[in-house]
Simulated assay, not measured.
Amino acid sequence: MHFTNTSEAVRAWVRGWALSRGAVEPAALPWGFTVPIGLPGHVMSHVLPTADEATVRELTGSTTGPGIWLKAFVPAESLAAWIAPGWSLPGAPGFLMSTALHAGTARTPPPLPGGYRLRTWADSGVVHARVHTPEGTTAARGQTSIDGATAVVDKVETHPAHRRRGLGRVIMRTLVDAATEKGATVGLLASTAEGRALYEATGWRVVAPLANALRGPDPAG
């Protein structure tokens, strides 16, 4: 599969992202998608495959409930200039990234440091991977939803105390191989600026910038 433009990639990503998060099917609207999440501090996400000033001002100006997120694939400075009062841009800007997945290229993940253990399982179209410490706590994690030819990698993170040990590469290799084995031919993910280097080192490329806006206080604050 090859995406002809950013909007097409975003449409594929939002379906897989909703599946990964256990949300209902994204509701298609003239300007994009709405995804109910139902969590404190993240009630709903509005996703704009293409964003412009007029659309963002109208959407954010008419949304007054807290815990609503807006995901726009534009530079953060553009989104910051367009959002209505009451909205903010929490955290650093990110990126939508993609890679081609090729059948028959699955490889054994890099070896884990001594004592670490890898666990994988599948549930409702989502493959999960965890690296556990010798004590049984989670050192690194990630998951990928598989929707036809598209795999959306999500929630990849390594606990700060266990970074720089190759655990992130093990998680990514495991998820990519699982997606390929299930017939996916393209991978998508939303990356932080911090995670971008890991993904680029394993063959992913940036498709578009990604900025997030939040209505109400930052839940992390």
Rank of each mutant, 00 (worst) to 15 (best):
A54T: 07
M44T: 09
M97D: 02
I171Y: 06
E53C: 06
A129E: 01
P36I: 12
G136I: 03
P36K: 03
D177C: 06
L101W: 12
E135S: 15
E58A: 14
G125P: 11
T34D: 14
S124E: 15
V35K: 09
D154W: 03
L189D: 13
L167D: 03
G41A: 01
A179F: 03
A184P: 01
Q143K: 14
L29Q: 14
T64V: 03
T144S: 14
A51W: 05
A12Y: 00
S45A: 13
R205L: 13
G195P: 08
A9K: 04
G104N: 10
H102E: 14
G16H: 08
T180D: 10
D177L: 05
G32C: 08
A139F: 10
G22K: 02
A72G: 08
W87F: 06
A72C: 00
V35I: 12
I171N: 10
L112A: 09
R15A: 05
S88C: 06
G183H: 02
R173M: 11
G32N: 09
S145V: 11
H42K: 13
T63V: 01
G168N: 05
W87D: 09
P217Q: 04
G166S: 11
L48M: 09
R107D: 14
T158S: 09
T105F: 09
P85T: 04
V131E: 13
I83N: 02
L89E: 00
T99W: 12
V47W: 01
L210S: 08
G221D: 07
G195K: 10
S7T: 01
T99G: 06
A140L: 11
G187M: 13
A139T: 11
T180F: 00
A201R: 15
A12E: 06
N5V: 05
T158Q: 11
V14T: 04
H42E: 13
G22T: 04
A140W: 01
I37E: 12
T50Q: 06
T144P: 04
T105C: 11
A213W: 11
V35A: 06
P219V: 08
G148R: 06
A139N: 06
P209T: 11
S124W: 07
T64R: 11
K155Y: 01
S78H: 01
P85C: 06
G114N: 13
A179N: 09
A197T: 15
G125C: 08
W204Y: 13
H102A: 12
G114R: 14
G203I: 12
P219E: 03
M172Y: 05
P75R: 04
W17Q: 04
P30N: 04
G41L: 02
L79P: 10
